[in-house]
Every structure is written in C-alpha cells, then in structure tokens.
C-alpha cells in the first residue's frame, strides 16, 4: 500500500513537471530550442536531486547516477583534449608512427609516459612491482619539493604574525588587543593538545581557555558551512525561478 502511494506520488510529480513545461513552452516562457530543453533538463535534475529531502526515490537515483556518468565522461574528454592529445599524442605518438609528421618525436616524454603506465600495472599480479618505481619517484620528488616549501609557507610565515610585537610603533590600541588575543589563542590551544602533562592547575586553566578558542572556531566554521550550503540552495532556486519559470527578472 505504502509502495503504491509512493509510486503514484512519483508519477503525479513527473506528470506535473511535464505539464508545467508544456504550458511554459506554449506561452513562450521557454524557447522551443536546445536552450529551452537544456533549461528543462537542468530544472528536472535539480528537482530530482532535491526530492531526496522527502525520501529516497527512483528519480533521485537516476539523477545521481547521471551526475556520476556525465562527470566521468566530461573528465575523460577534457583530459584528452587539454592534456593527453597536445602533450603526449601529438609530440610523441604521431611522429613515431606517422611518416607525414613534420616534427621529430620528443623522446623525453617516454620517461614520464612509462612511469604513468607502470602505475596502471598495479592491476597485474606479475608486473605490479613495476608500479613501485613510479611510487618511489612520486614520493621522492613530492617530499623533496614539499618539505622546504611547506615549512616555509605554513610554519615560518605563520609564526611571524604570532610573534608580532604587541606595542610596536604605529599600532592602534585595538590591533594590539588583537595581537594579544592571537597570542593567547595559540598558546592555550597548543597547551590543550599537550596530553603528556595532566591538565591541572595553571595548565588546566590554560587548556580550558584553549577549549573556548576551539569552540569559537568550530562555531565560526559551522556558521560558514550553513552559509555555504544555503548559497547552493539559493543558487538552484534562483535558477528555477529565473531561468525555468521566469518569475524573477
């Protein structure tokens, strides 16, 4: 009985959506062109995705799978035309196998190409050991490049403002207070994360202040997250009201 009701709700909603689009096209609110059908498709998928808020249903499943498929297809096409074709196929493969090619093959590209292919050999039991060469290259190069840069950008550059003098020349009273708050926040949060000392006495009080700083930062993150999720909803509703229904100008 319950399944029947859900089925009729789904069919009814789809029917209403089709009817609404016929009316919109009949009254010229939507153009009878690829643009118009694109907007209808966008509106339909938006509604199908949001229908999950009521409960899971086949329309949501179709939209969800469509999203995964389209994203993957788009990624493959963009990667081929923006990267593989101009950076590998044209400078290496075409000159290697075509006598009509104007330029000689760029053999230097063989090295990264082979390393890339070795990565795929993880699927082969006999040859998967070759993928370790690629991983060794990636880990070695990555660590060598990252360690000094990350220390410089994330630690040294961040320590600088934390060690800023509280009463330096030209500072306003409020900015000095700000510097003090930052100093207190850094020290108290660091103390909170020292677990090898029992949080009692002065250490305990400082770690409590640290908890307050953490709570305020979690609150700020939550507030921003609410704003972010709402922005997505607002954007979709703007699309439905403006582009699809033509209510907003």
């Amino acid at each position: 009985m319950r399944r029947d009701t859900n089925f009729f709700i789904l069919i009814g909603t789809v029917g209403l959506f089709v009817l609404a689009n016929i009316i919109l096209m009949a009254f010229g609110k939507l153009p009878f062109s690829s643009d118009g059908f694109g907007i209808i498709l966008g509106a339909g998928i938006t509604l199908a995705i949001y229908s999950f808020l009521y409960q899971d249903n086949p329309a949501f499943k179709i939209a969800e799978n469509l999203y995964v498929g389209v994203s993957l297809g788009y990624t493959i096409i963009i990667t081929w035309f923006n990267f593989l074709k101009p950076d590998l196929y044209e400078p290496l493969i075409v000159p290697l196998f075509s006598s009509a090619a104007e330029k000689s093959p760029q053999y230097a590209l063989l090295c990264p190409s082979l390393l890339g292919l070795f990565m795929l050999l993880r699927f082969s039991r006999k040859l998967s050991w070759l993928s370790r060469w690629t991983f060794a290259f990636v880990v070695g190069l990555g660590a060598g490049i990252s360690i000094p840069r990350v220390i410089s950008a994330f630690i040294l550059q961040q320590i600088k403002p934390s060690l800023h003098p509280v009463f330096s020349g030209g500072e306003t009273f409020l900015s000095s207070i700000n510097t003090l708050i930052i100093l207190l926040g850094v020290i108290s949060v660091l103390i909170y994360f020292i677990f090898s000392v029992e949080h009692k006495g002065a250490i305990g009080k400082m770690s409590k202040i640290g908890i307050w700083f953490l709570m305020i930062s979690f609150g700020a993150s939550f507030g921003y997250t609410v704003m972010g999720r709402l922005s997505l909803l607002i954007g979709r509703i703007q699309f439905l009201l403006k582009d699809w229904l033509g209510i907003l100008q």
Partner: peptide, 23 residues
Amino acid sequence: AVMGPDMYPFLQSKQLNGLLGGL
C-alpha cells in the same frame, strides 16, 4: 564559505592580500 575560516590565518600573515569568502 566552508573553506573561509581556514583562510583567515593567511590574511593575518599577509600571504593573501584579500579574500572573498562565500556568497
């Protein structure tokens, strides 16, 4: 907006000269 709070330390250190956070 979700990333906004994580970017403020880079403003403080002047690694970023400005930030547009969310909508």
